[in-house]
């Protein structure tokens, strides 16, 4: 079941993405209204991260399109912030917390000019919002997992975006950080921002998100949480493997065949 939205901020249309010919996402279709806190839920290997990477233009699709504010991503990058998984960077890198948060102020056209005082003040405010103002000169190699996550979040806040796409911000962090992040996301939503979060834990999903997207290579359901949290959909997402899809996917990879004719 997919709840259609009249005036969507995010629209994903018939999106198929494959890695080495093996489809990770298959014909995914959904749309999101503005001002929701949405979770992408599904088992491991369901293509959750792939979905938001495709939305950010980090991986390219075989078919379909993604539109944010009714535009392709390259035209609206300034309004979209991305929070990658913590594990994707080397935290031994010689940089301070503030250095990392200031990256949120980097822009393509302004890469050669200096950052202003205002940028720095904004970065500090963002650190405050995640409760890390006391750590601004701390080296990132000395942070705990939860603190690393909060730094990444502050960096995204510094972008002052309208849409936030986050990859597993709740993975492997302490309870305090979890609470901080959750409250912060709620505040952003109340300000009218649209937030889409990849989340692996079904238990907490109902509490956290007001819109839920169930994904397992294909889209199982997307809509307000009470419509989605029904046993039938959850079984479809988690229960049993989609043998047919897996077999056909393997066949595609083996024959190195495209998922679209043209």
């Amino acid at each position: 079941m997919t709840t259609k939205v009249a005036d969507p901020v995010i629209e994903v249309h018939d999106l198929t993405v494959s890695y080495q010919r093996k489809p990770a996402l298959w014909g995914v279709d959904f749309s999101l209204p503005s001002g929701v806190l949405a979770g992408i839920i599904g088992p491991n290997g369901a293509g959750k991260s792939t979905l938001i990477k495709a939305m950010m233009g980090l991986v390219s699709g075989d078919s379909g399109y993604v539109r944010l504010f009714n535009r392709p991503i390259d035209e609206v990058r300034g309004k979209v912030a991305y929070v990658p998984q913590r594990g994707t960077v080397d935290w031994d890198f010689p940089a301070s917390v503030l250095d990392v948060v200031l990256m949120g102020r980097f822009k393509k056209r302004r890469l050669f000019s200096r950052l202003s005082k205002a940028d720095e003040a904004l970065a500090l405010r963002c650190l405050e919002q995640v409760g890390m103002e006391g750590f601004k000169y701390r080296q990132i190699s000395q942070l705990s997992g939860g603190q690393q996550q909060r730094v990444f979040l502050a960096r995204a806040l510094a972008q002052q975006a309208e849409i936030y796409l986050m990859d597993e911000p709740f993975a492997g962090i302490d309870a305090t950080t979890e609470q901080t992040i959750f409250e912060l996301l709620g505040k952003l939503r109340d300000e009218g921002k649209t937030i889409l979060v990849v989340h692996h834990d079904l238990q907490s999903a109902y509490q956290y998100f007001d819109w839920i997207i169930l994904l397992n290579t294909q889209l199982v359901a997307s809509g307000p949480r009470s419509d989605i949290f029904v046993p039938d959909y959850l079984r479809k997402t988690y229960g049993g493997k989609l043998n047919m899809l897996t077999s056909v996917g393997e066949m595609l990879a083996e024959m190195e065949a495209p998922t679209r004719e043209k």
Binding site: G57, R77, V100, M103
Partner: peptide
């Protein structure tokens, strides 16, 4: 000196740099 920010961000987190259009 001029490209410090560009070198810094593409070295530390190339994926994020891409999302900024760098």
């Amino acid at each position: 000196g001029l490209g410090y920010k560009g070198l810094f961000i593409t070295t530390f987190d190339p994926e994020y740099a891409t999302t900024l259009g760098i």
